[in-house]
Computed example of a mutant assay.
Amino acid sequence: MLHLRSRVISSLFLGLLALGLPAQTPPPPADGGIGDLLVAPTRVVFEERKRSAELNLSNIGQARATFRISLVRMEMDEMGGIKELPFDPGTENLRPLFRFSPRQVTLDPRESQTVRIQVRKPAQLPEGEYRLHMTFRAVPPDAPVPAPQAVAEAPKGIAIKLTPVYGIAIPLIVRHGKTSASISITAPTFDAKGGVLRFRLDRSGNQSVYGDLKATLLPAAGAPEVLAEASGLAVYTPNSGRTVTLPIRSGQPIPPGSRIRIAYSQPVLDGGRLLAETVMTTP
């Protein structure tokens, strides 16, 4: 479930939310009653015979809010960041794959709305995976019309008012024909000073991967101890991998020569199957 709490939409923020990564502490809600939005589920995959899906939008804020819904093209970089790119001749044909309704919703506080999505595959669609992101952007409320006297007394010149736009995005993925992927964890390192693990998730195949990470300390004696966890990390096609920086929980000293197991698994709701693992020894 994605929760929008009056945040300015940006490439970084979209990437964090779309992938399920923890975002920074949000600023206080902006004036104007944009509202809070919950979206569930946070990603939709159409595969095998699945051709339709529903999203549930809920306004948990204190003010009436309007959200405009659209499809955008987004790509992942080597660090896992997501940025919006314009459609080009090679990706413009992805738009007709998805049909959805409504394209704009207005929700009172505590009100919910269903968005219905359908996939229409063309007859000669090549085998593989196709992806767009669906964005939900808050529409700022109309500004009040100034009184005639105020207009007359306004100083001459150019006035610019910047109105922030708030929103989130979720991936819509279509898999057609035979698709598969394999993933491995490579080049693990531990930065004792910074308290972080760094490694790569290397992907191969014609399908994206999505899962949860867990780093566990394996002591010579005693029970294993979880050092860090991260939920909802993806490696999207066509990327061959991404670099991951995983902060360990504060206050947990890691002596030299310690063994750490890093595991990447499907989310529990998807079965929890182990996708990749490695065990490293700290220097």
Rank of each mutant, 00 (worst) to 15 (best):
M79T: 10
M79Y: 08
G80H: 01
K83I: 02
E84T: 14
F87N: 00
P89F: 09
E92I: 15
L97M: 14
F98N: 08
D108H: 02
E111R: 00
T114G: 03
V115A: 00
R116T: 14
R116L: 12
I117R: 08
V119S: 04
A123M: 11
A123F: 12
A123G: 00
A123Y: 08
Q124C: 07
Q124Y: 04
L125V: 00
P126G: 06
P126R: 12
E127W: 03
E127M: 14
G128A: 09
L132I: 08
M134F: 13
M134C: 11
M134A: 05
M134Y: 12
P140S: 07
P144W: 01
P144F: 07
P144M: 02
P146K: 05
A147W: 00
P148W: 08
Q149M: 13
A150R: 10
V151P: 02
V151N: 08
V151S: 10
A152C: 01
E153H: 11
K156R: 13
G157E: 09
G157N: 03
G157Y: 01
I160T: 14
L162T: 14
L162N: 12
L162W: 06
G167M: 02
L172C: 10
I173W: 00
V174N: 02
S180G: 13
S180I: 05
A181E: 02
S182D: 11
I183G: 00
S184L: 07
I185K: 02
P188C: 02
D191R: 08
A192D: 09
G194H: 00
G194Y: 04
G194D: 02
V196K: 09
V196T: 13
F199R: 04
L201R: 05
L201F: 09
D202E: 15
S204A: 15
S204H: 07
S204K: 14
S204P: 03
N206Q: 01
S208M: 07
S208F: 03
